[in-house]
Amino acid sequence: MGSPSYWREKVYRYRLIAKYCENCNKKYYPPKLACPICGNKELKEVQLPRIGTLITYTWVTQPTKDFATQAPYVVGLIKLDDGTLIVSQLTDVEIEELKDGIRVEAVFRRMFEEGDSGLIYYGTKFRPCLFSK
């Protein structure tokens, strides 16, 4: 992914901010330019909860080039505490620790980098909650 588009999305990626359609009472993450239901372009930025529940997950052993050094890693479908569903990489977790329904929390981590001399890209991942939440 090129740096201009990532740079435009940094606030959403760094801080877990979604777009919200007041007409449809729907939150979109990743954010959308317009509501896919009613076409409303006046979407508001809202902070998503940083805690949720792992619905399901997969173990990635054959990643794309950008994520090659991180393999093996986990990608999960997470239901945040406000009901928003998001797909995110999980970190600080081993496969044997994973099970559907565990509580997870957002953390700020490196996503990938453009080789040894290019930019470093950051974003939100999830890890098992440090404490019961």
């Binding site: 991180q70 600080d92 700020f108 490196r110 996503m111 950051y122 991942k125």
Partner: peptide, 16 residues
């Protein structure tokens, strides 16, 4: 520190 951690990510969690 893990592969996806660096000075910035650790600083963010401490500051948070």
């Amino acid at each position: 520190a893990a592969l996806d951690e660096d000075t910035a990510t650790m600083a963010v969690e401490a500051a948070y």
